[in-house]
Amino acid sequence: MNMSNPMIESTEIPEINYESVKRKQRIRTFAKGMLFLLPSLLLFGVFLFYPLFKTLYLSFFLTNARGETTVFVGLQNYLGMFASPIFHQSMKSTFLFVLYTVPTTIIIALFLAVLANEKLKGIGFFRTIFTSTMGISVAAASVFWLYLFHPSIGFINGILEMIGMESIGWLTDPKWALIAVAVTTIWMNLGFTFLVLLGGLQSIDSYLYESADIDGASYFYKLRRITIPMLSPTLFFVITVTIINAFQTFGQIDILTQGGPQNTTNLIVYSIYREAFTNYQFGTASAQAIVLFVIILIMTIIQFKLGERKVHYQ
């Protein structure tokens, strides 16, 4: 054995090993990463991504009652849907519903959060009360309001009669039904919205208020100049979540009005449900589901894009 060989080997081999070890390591960490992510990815694939594409696929077909495709109809389901007065009514009601619920929920919840953010004795009790509707399910809340809106024995008509006004068919009058469902929804969402906004308020640095106090700023000045701007990321989040939730409304409708009277409360998810699972028109129902998906998609993208730029972050 000569002396130079081992010398050469010892300088070359480690380098080659280093590369291959690195590659092996990379494959190993990749495999490990996938292993940790696999359960989530698998379930997202089966119950979210695949169904989404299947919905798109179904929307180009007619189906039988079992949901198997029968005839390819191209865009016919979409064309039929956009020409249908029932779908127009459904879209109109859905957007009206968003308009009724979102600003009101946020204004009331913000009012409650500002009140409950004061350092007063017993404030914890009030916070608990304001949060409480978060623990009340859609079914229970709807049953509560079904009674409150009851035409003859209901609490609200009782008050109306007491002050000498005529009672209202809250859930049977096409003029009022959507408003009644909106009121129920606002009440239901109050707890969650309040809790998030209160969290946002509490994370504002108290130093800002102290220095404003030194300058002798008024309560409303502080509210307008410190609280609202500092709260804007939270507000923005809450607005998007409330809008998305409003588009997904189902339970209240199912218990309070079943989409009636005259389809005035036939919001989009209820419309999809009825088309698919009572009329067994899975093709047209899928076309509606795609519309819902596109709306939510746009909302989420707006949240991501605008949320970063237009909102004041700390």
Partner: peptide
């Protein structure tokens, strides 16, 4: 992706 949009499949 709202769950409601993929509820049929």
């Amino acid at each position: 992706v709202p769950f409601e949009a993929s509820i049929i499949p």
